[in-house]
Amino acid sequence: MSLIELRHVTKTYRKGEHVVTPLADVTLDVEKAEFFVLVGPSGSGKTTLLNLIAAIDRPDSGSIRVGDVELGTSSSSRLADWRAEHVGYVFQQANLVPVLTAYENVELPLYLFGLSAAERHRRVALALEAVGLADRATHLPKQLSGGQEQRVAIARAIVADPEILVADEPTGNLDHESAEGVLELLSRLHLERKKTVVMVTHDPRAARFGTRRMVLDKGILREEAAAR
């Protein structure tokens, strides 16, 4: 059984007077410890698909099962709990809390687990170490470069040790060098920690890092051979 199973998933929303269908009858399986990359042009529904997998959004029809949890029928508070435990989300922008330091930003998800301060400290230190920013712990986001901010965001995504990492255009706002660094980091997490990574990108260079690649266009999924 696949870790992530989407069956005949359709999602529509209204945009003014028009009904937009970013996902039409999508069926998809993502295996455990896979680095799955979804490519496609802007507005093709990639982020919608990612949000459905991360239980931030719900489908209009069809089913989404992750592990043994059916996301479409769970309550929103149950989904919030599930998200905290199973999913680390990396956004196009780092979305760090500007008034908190790198350390405090990474610590945020851990408050959801009732851990002791010592345990939180241990995990945050490990996460910052993993992204190579242990020496930037006390810096505020505005004191970090774009690449460093995104790496702090990745540390925040992995600090609670979720099995799935979802990344929405994680290099979209970065220069070439920083982008490479972030992608290598994601790849390393996938290889060394056996994380299942689902990444959305429209950057062909980024797509190379995936073990499997699919194209989403006008709501329809098409499989392509892995590029790596």
């Binding site: 931030i56 998200r83 989300y89 979305n95 945020l108 959801l112």
Partner: peptide
Amino acid sequence: ELATLRAIGYG
């Protein structure tokens, strides 16, 4: 930022 906190798992 608030949406990010929700995405992280805060209700």
